[in-house]
Simulated assay, not measured.
Amino acid sequence: MQKTALLPYARLPRAHHDRHVLSSTVDVFGAAHWLLVERAPEPGSGVRPFDALVVSVHPYGNVELTELSAVRARWPHLDRLPKGGFVVASPRARWYEAADQVQVFDELGHETASFSVGDAVEHMLVDEAGHLWVGHFDENPDGINRWSATGRRVWTSDGARIPGLFDCYALNVSGTVAWACPYTDFPLVEIRPDRSDRPVKVWANTIRGARAVAVHGKQVVFYGGYGEERDRLAHGELTETSVEPTEVGLLTLPDGAPPGHRRVVGRGSRIYVQAEPFTTWDVFDLNG
């Protein structure tokens, strides 16, 4: 089976390797961000507000540091807002902490808003307009929603006729468009919320279990799968109604090793992969 090696993309500066990586992402403009704390949370410990450092590495290599005050999420999602500042979101929204589930910080690291987007958050990605795309896993039937940075829901998958939307396995946000591949039917779904005539388009798909998706023109690639297909890179071509598989291979780290435990982020034609110890991001680009 053909192997495709990821390309090195961004690296956490070595001066910050003594801290624990609590969360990390690549934003819609291609900057990589690490949310760092002094030490890893202890199992079973309660959540008390804590200070954290965001280290941002921009596409041309310049580094930016932002101190966040009184972060409350234990295992957070992280993303940057287009005009500066960050969003930190807890995957869970239990009744006693729902109002603080999502925290919005300005460019100085001060909290400006907090709100809930619903329990069981699998993905949280910010688009170029500053909206939050949230995909839920199967403990919450809310599916996929788009929120303003002040907590107003501006689009919902309710009534969108997305087949088998029980768990948002894969979510890709680029520009103001989202692509998804949800469990159980695993269709490829394009969501353009600003289009009034046809905001959602669905293609039938036989590739199961992907955890990331990238799209470029008529070409699509799915990364991940079940069991031995965990490192699968499955290519396809879009027809009017379906994804036609074209080839299947494996995605590896730049040195040829399997990624193992990893984070993945889909942005347009790109899939970013971060393997333990989570200090580097590597990239696969469907657009060459």
Rank of each mutant, 00 (worst) to 15 (best):
W179H: 15
A180D: 04
Y183T: 11
Y183L: 10
T184Y: 04
D185Q: 14
P187L: 12
P187S: 08
L188F: 07
V189N: 00
V189P: 00
E190M: 13
R192P: 00
S196M: 07
R198A: 13
R198T: 14
P199V: 01
V200L: 08
K201W: 09
V202Y: 06
W203Q: 07
A204C: 04
A204D: 14
T206V: 14
T206D: 13
I207M: 15
I207A: 11
R208M: 09
R208E: 13
R208D: 09
G209P: 09
G209L: 09
A210G: 06
R211P: 00
A212P: 07
V213I: 15
V213E: 12
V213N: 11
V213F: 03
V215A: 13
V215T: 07
H216G: 09
H216M: 04
G217N: 05
V220P: 10
V220H: 05
V221N: 10
Y223G: 09
G224K: 14
G227D: 15
G227I: 02
E228T: 11
E228Y: 09
E229V: 01
R230C: 10
R230P: 06
D231F: 00
D231L: 00
R232D: 15
R232S: 15
L233M: 11
L233T: 00
H235A: 11
H235C: 02
H235V: 03
E237F: 01
E237Y: 03
L238H: 06
T239R: 07
T239K: 09
T241S: 14
S242P: 03
S242V: 08
S242T: 11
V243P: 08
P245K: 13
E247L: 11
L251I: 07
T252M: 11
T252N: 11
T252E: 08
L253K: 12
P254T: 12
P254K: 10
G256R: 07
A257T: 15
A257P: 06
G260W: 10
R262M: 03
R262Y: 03
R263P: 01
R263H: 12
V265L: 01
V265R: 15
G266P: 01
R267F: 05
G268S: 04
G268V: 05
G268N: 07
S269G: 12
R270L: 02
Y272W: 10
E276M: 05
E276A: 14
T279N: 12
T279Y: 13
T280C: 12
W281R: 08
W281I: 11
V283W: 02
V283S: 01
D285Q: 08
